[in-house]
Design a protein around this nucleic acid. Sequence first.
DNA 1: CGGGTTTGACCAGCGC
DNA 2: GCGCTGGTCAAACCCG
Length: 133
Amino acid sequence: MMDGWPPEDDRSFIFSGHAHNHLRYHANQVHDYVDASSSHDGVRSGDNSGGQETRQVRERVAFRTKSEVEILHDGFKWKKYGKKTVKNSPNPRNYYRCSVNGCSVKKRVERDGDDPSFVITTYDGIHNHPSPN
DNA sequence: CGGGTTTGACCAGCGC
DNA sequence: GCGCTGGTCAAACCCG
């Protein structure tokens, strides 16, 4: 799983913005990978003709940012709810969650094993709360 | 005092 | 069937 990211995917492009980060943020090279549709979602063993599947559109947005800090200030409040070590990288992976009311967005932060100077920030879900910005 | 952070343990899914 | 990885939650602690 997630052994390697799409090295050169068509969806990869330079992401510019978030310049309001007064932290050590180097918007030098950022790749953006968006997957709004469930990858191996598929059908559930045969029928499931029931429909009414309130499947939340879990939008997966991954950002590779060259930064020394893993917590970039995007204007949302994140609460760390777990830490796990990755086998692929000697660095631990941090799990964050939006502490805003009604916001069920999850954030995954991991350091690049090949380039520890890079940070992988993956957003899971969409914000459902007015940005305090 | 509140909220945020931390570590460990547990659980589920999948692979072998 | 067992083992492993990834992911989540809870309790306790620390800081502002």
